[in-house]
Design a protein around this nucleic acid. Structure first.
Length: 563
RNA sequence: GCGCUCGUAGCUCAACUGGAUAGAGUGCUUGGCUUCGGACCAUGAGGUUGCAGGUUCAAAUCCUGCCGGGCGCACCA
């Protein structure tokens, strides 16, 4: 059991109170752990401050608690506990050393398997900044689920079969120069799609040509179908290269083209069952009585809409895997759609909890919009801009490094920056992605965290210092206690962030931990201290490095030893 | 029109889901480099938490009504 959890339960059992309301004092001078007495005092019919005072006297005399707390005192209605530094240091350092990468994990989700779907690119379209928020968020949740004991199954669903495909192919065929361009073909398809979109908006009369291509692809015959297969491969390869660069792995990837036939069959069955019905020539789900309006599923011309595939995908997921929960990471604009989809699935008989994890949009500060694509910035454009900035900065700091090494570090910082920026803001807020702010090395940024970690590791790396059994009683500085308390809170952060699907709690925690370390580093010298103290301090910062590393893993950031 | 959502320092965001003096970053003030990697640290100023009521010992947080922004509501995905 983790130390704070353990201490809380010890206090609770010493008090024999039913509901115990703990919190953390706003400032370390007040104490390390706090019990808020309003409710308990009210239940006992007493004045809260007096109540707290009485409890303090009572608990101070408790022999068991004396082992863990150096002091217990009431400040107004708050009963404050001061954790004994020796006990704290011993407990935290030993536990982190023992559990290593698993420090902070818990078993609350044991025995439950959860599927989480994210990234969800469309072939023949750009992979843009919005997808990056999606994939960063989804992957962090995937890690959080695992850290909380769930068996998490990360999957992606790629839409390779919609009208967007036909638009791109139409435009590609119309402009033969695409085939000769040097860019990555998957990337180029995105550009081609954007151009097609603009052209079709300006000249709607071409829609008929696009429709013909669509029919050919759906019928799975002819030159356009063949070309669809080829181009689809380009996109899929391109996505794979992005996932590799981002260091994100899916356990399975579903494709719309592989589930759509089963979807059409399912729709027919549901029509017979009366879950769906015909209306104005189309097939719809009438969900008016649930306050969810109407969802069209098959167009009046008989072609399928997105929900047909999604219904089939959902049943495929449950057929293939024994899931106790299924999560969809999709942006907030589709909230109503997912309520409708989940209602239909419920009507069909699926009882497992279905979760639509939402997040809001990513925009750019005005004037920074990409002129070439109109209003989206692609992954590649963002990555290239950040990479240029960060490799210049890294290069200027390390004149003696080989080009390859600079490139490697700059790329890791680029990816870390993208993920961190996407995760540090809570999901319900719109992100205005400011490249200048994101690529900074100070402030609430990925590079600040990475720098703190690298600096910490450089101390640990120094030769000639022994790391044997340290006497942790040598840790007596207030800043050391602050660091230890903060590290002791890490498991609670993981539990809370997991429960609330909120990785920004982890980003903030890590930022504050690095801040605390920088402060400590500035004030207290580690290597120049007397041998016994030095040993204890080295043990402390090794522990700190492990906690930071574990947090980086949750966020999907590579922990750089040097930068 | 109905529904969802956001509104906190000049700007970008926190606030343990109702608790102690609303905190960080950035920008602006003023300082600290023969440093364990200064890609760092410290200091000061900056707030009627959109507005008005209500509930509570206690409200940025809950309830009601306004104001303002964003989004969604049948053949897009």
């Amino acid at each position: 059991m983790y130390i704070l959890e353990d201490l809380k339960s010890k206090i609770a059992s010493a008090l024999k109170l039913e509901r115990v309301n703990f919190s953390y004092p706003p400032n370390p001078a007040l104490g390390d752990l706090s019990l808020i007495c309003f409710e308990a005092a009210k239940a006992a019919g007493k004045n809260p401050a007096e109540f707290a005072l009485n409890l303090a006297t009572e608990l101070k005399a408790d022999k068991e608690l004396q082992k863990y707390f150096s002091d217990i005192k009431a400040t107004g209605p708050y009963l404050n506990f001061f954790i004994s530094l020796g006990y704290l240091a011993d407990s935290v350092v030993k536990q982190v050393k023992k559990e290593r990468v698993a420090y902070g994990f818990n078993k609350s989700g044991a025995g439950q398997s959860v599927m989480i779907e994210y990234s969800n690119g469309n072939t023949h379209k750009e992979y843009h900044i919005g997808h990056l928020r999606n994939i960063s968020y989804g992957d962090a949740i995937n890690h959080l689920l695992r850290a909380n004991g769930y068996e998490s199954i990360p999957v992606s669903y790629i839409n390779d079969f919609g009208i967007h495909v036909a638009k791109t192919i139409w435009n590609w065929r119309k402009n033969p120069n695409y085939a000769d361009r040097p860019e990555n073909k998957g990337y180029l398809l995105g550009k081609c799609y954007a151009a097609a979109s603009r052209e079709l908006t300006a000249n709607p009369e071409y829609k008929e040509e696009v429709g013909k291509i669509m029919t050919e692809i759906e019928n799975r015959s002819g030159a356009n179908h063949k070309f669809w297969r080829e181009t689809r491969g380009w996109s899929i390869d391109y996505f794979a290269s992005i996932y590799k660069e981002l260091d994100i792995k899916f356990q399975h990837i579903f494709y719309e083209s592989e589930v759509i036939d089963a979807g059409l069959k399912l729709v027919k069955e549901l029509l017979v069952k009366g879950v769906l019905k015909k209306s104005e020539g189309a097939i719809i789900a009438d969900l008016e009585k649930y306050g969810l309006g109407v969802l069209p599923i098959i167009r009046s011309d008989g072609t399928a809409l997105y929900p047909a595939a999604d219904l089939s995908l959902a049943s495929e997921k449950f057929k293939k895997y024994d899931l106790s929960r299924s999560i969809y990471v999709v942006d907030v604009r589709q909230s109503l759609y997912f309520e409708q989809l989940f209602k239909i699935l419920e009507l069909i008989g699926y009882q497992q909890p279905l979760v639509h994890l939402t997040y809001d949009f990513v925009t750019l500060p005005s004037g920074m919009m990409s002129s070439r694509t109109g209003n989206v910035i692609t992954y590649q454009e963002l990555r290239d801009k950040l990479f240029a900035r960060l490799s210049e900065e890294t290069g200027s700091r390390h004149k003696n490094w080989a080009a390859g090494r600079i490139k490697e570090v700059a790329l890791a910082l680029t990816i870390a920056t993208i993920k961190f920026e996407m995760l540090k803001v809570s999901a319900d807020k719109i992100i205005t992605f400011n490249i200048d702010e994101a690529a900074r090395f100070d402030g609430y940024t990925a590079c600040y965290l990475e720098y703190g970690y690298a600096r910490l590791k450089s101390i640990v790396r120094k030769k000639g210092f022994s790391f044997g059994a340290a006497d942790l009683n040598r840790l007596t500085e207030p800043k050391e206690k602050e660091l230890l308390i903060r590290m002791a809170k890490y498991p609670e952060v993981i539990a809370s962030a997991g429960e609330k699907y909120n990785p920004s709690e982890v980003t903030r925690y890590l930022f504050e931990l690095v801040q605390l370390f920088n402060d400590y580093y500035h004030e207290i010298n580690i290597l120049k201290a007397k041998p016994k103290i030095r040993k204890a301090r080295l043990a402390l910062i090794k522990t700190l490095a492990q906690v930071l590393h574990n947090g980086f893993d949750i966020l999907g950031l590579k922990a750089l030893e040097e930068m």
